[in-house]
Design a protein around this nucleic acid. Structure first.
Lengths: 110, 110
DNA sequence: CAGTATCCGGTTTGATACTG
DNA sequence: CAGTATCAAACCGGATACTG
């Protein structure tokens, strides 16, 4: 991945330069966003520049189905929902790191 | 990856069960096919069940452009072309292996 | 806030037939 | 053998407006 592990920028254009993809277009980025703890829908959306709510919902649902993260509805109005990585999801970050390392080491070669 | 490292089956349906993708749909499989040495176009096509020649050509060209493999035309008639991994391409296999290991360790969890 | 509901466009992938 | 050419379909991914 072209994205450094401590990146502040969660932009798919950076991710695109990597030949490795985790899941669909946004899943890898969501993984990174949740790396530092749980976040709410709107927080994720703000950080993931350019995701439409529809696509973010789809991504989140798929990741939940695959047990990469959990969705916790705290109820109330306005609603309050939190997404957090599971241990399985967190373990994927190691794979991502491997890909990251590869990209950093070899992408400049071209 | 659902595909064991020494898999004989290069079927995209297996690859699909993996959350990690290298390049486009077939690139990862091509990498695996060339793991044990150079191969000709038809050999690759036979092993990669279901690739159309058009798509295989596109995949191969893209991988050549990215220096993942080399294309060597030995001339003659009938033609004789060989595809072989570069060092860069081979290094990607390590990344693939990491993904493979992850899949084997965690896919059963679901 | 946390989503749905619609509609839509582009890229990707594929089937098939043909050629030097 | 190693591809092209052509035509289609499927599959994302996205814009936008609306709601409990």
């Amino acid at each position: 991945m072209a994205i450094p592990r401590d990146a502040v920028v969660f932009d798919p254009h950076c991710a695109r330069s990597s030949p490795i993809r985790i899941g669909d277009k946004w899943s890898g980025l969501v993984l990174r966003c949740l790396q530092d703890g749980p976040h709410r829908f709107t927080e994720l959306k703000a950080r993931l520049r350019g995701v439409s709510p529809k696509v973010l919902t789809e991504t989140l649902r798929a990741m939940e189905r695959d047990h990469w993260l959990t969705r916790t509805d705290h109820g109330g109005n306005p609603p309050h929902v939190e997404y957090a990585l599971t241990a399985l999801g967190a373990s994927l970050l190691d794979v991502l790191d491997t890909a990251c390392d590869w990209a950093r080491a070899h992408l400049a070669e071209n």
